[in-house]
Nucleic acid binder design. Structure first.
Lengths: 224, 224
DNA sequence: CTGGTGCTTAACAATTTGATAATATATAAC
DNA sequence: GTTATATATTATCAAATTGTTAAGCACCAG
């Protein structure tokens, strides 16, 4: 379940660090630790965690500062950040949320609470995350206009991209030629019969795999 | 969590309105509703929502029109706008972005999807307001109007700066040409086709690196 | 008034894309 | 197995898109 997600914990109290580390590691997460703000920043850069837990009260950059610095870097825009606060003071909590933290937990921390919060944050972020279609070894990101095959970026021209995105939007479904024409070329543009074939061919060529199946007399479908 | 953010929903179907309203209110948002375009405009002025959800197909000004009108007023420049579209047609989606919408959701809408999209948009917008963006070796300071590349200060003219800041606000995302025009030149100014290219060229020249990628037929994107 | 800067445009070059035609191959029907 | 039909493949060309350069205008500081 935890699928080797990486977590960085920063707290200046060694015993708390240990308890949290133990409990999260038990869940299957890969955990690194830091004892102050500066170290947290350093390790974050190297370790590239998916989630970071920051104690607010730490030497050399406190938790809020670290959070701020991280959030200003594009690398950490998507990283989940949880703040640990000793005081359940409203001010601090609000400040934390303004800083861009995703959640906060007030000390003392019950390990069970932390673990379940971490799990649920991962679940939530996954849903929220992004507008990408992923099917098998292929990932299609509409926003970035980018297709990845086994992690490798493949450059598709506009029509090719749209065609693939359309087919992949519903894996398994057979798209009639007319359906494809309407969706991608619109109803007022008229193109010859072979045009679709040619684009399909180019996609197959570039993806270098047979993920697009021809259903003769009907249309095409995408499958992982 | 939702910190009394205000949301306005406009749709002519009463039941959809009710479902969405219920789900968003449950999350802690303050929700108002409108059943047509004219009413949406009216309520927007009074209620001053932080986020507006517009069905595209509505009587008395459709969603696209309402979006256009709102965006032309300075009051609503910062307001988040989501379009609801019945058709998953690319054309409509692209038109929506060109009109200045921040996102679109295709019907039928799963309440959970909407809620998480709303949450993530609020989070994203919060980040975008950041004064300092840093991506890779580049640092952009909105307040000082200053760009640093490897610590070295690079002087960009205003339009150049704004263009770079826009692209860098979401590394990886492809900005359509019209999206760029709306964001930087506004909806009422009309400039020639090559203007964007020329500015892009100057930025590339001054930064002396290929961090801005052309996606032919679509737009430009910034990458670290 | 003058020189400099920023913004836009026009004109042209360079590039990429998408569509088509022509031909080959595959598939289903008979 | 042959024929008719649908799709695959390939090369080619026109159209669309972007890159580049230089020039013109507006504006501001000195």
């Amino acid at each position: 379940m935890a699928a080797d997600k990486k977590i960085l914990i920063a707290d200046d109290e060694a015993d708390i660090l240990e308890i949290l580390q133990f409990n999260l590691a038990k869940e299957g997460y890969k955990v690194e630790t830091a004892m102050n703000g500066a170290e947290a920043l350093e390790k974050a850069e190297k370790f590239l965690p998916d989630l970071i837990i920051l104690d607010i009260m730490m030497p050399y950059y406190n938790g809020l500062e670290v959070c701020n610095i991280l959030r200003s870097k594009s690398t950490f825009q998507q990283t989940i950040i949880i703040l640990l606060t000793a005081i359940s003071n409203d001010q601090t909590q609000i400040q934390g949320l303004e800083t861009g933290a995703d959640d906060y937990i007030s000390k003392p921390v019950a390990p069970k609470v932390l673990v379940s919060k971490v799990n649920s944050l991962f679940r939530r972020m996954q849903k929220d995350a992004k507008d990408v279609i992923s099917a098998g070894t292929i990932e299609i990101d509409r926003e970035k206009y980018e297709v990845k095959h086994n992690g490798e970026i493949i450059t598709l021209a506009r029509k090719e991209f749209e065609l693939l995105a359309l087919l992949a939007s519903r894996p398994g479904k057979v798209f009639l030629r007319n359906e494809i024409l309407n969706q991608i070329w619109g109803t007022d543009v008229i193109v010859g019969d072979r045009t679709i074939d040619v684009h399909i061919r180019k996609i197959r060529q570039k993806l270098n795999m047979d993920s697009i199946t021809t259903v003769k007399g009907v249309g095409y479908k995408f499958e992982a």
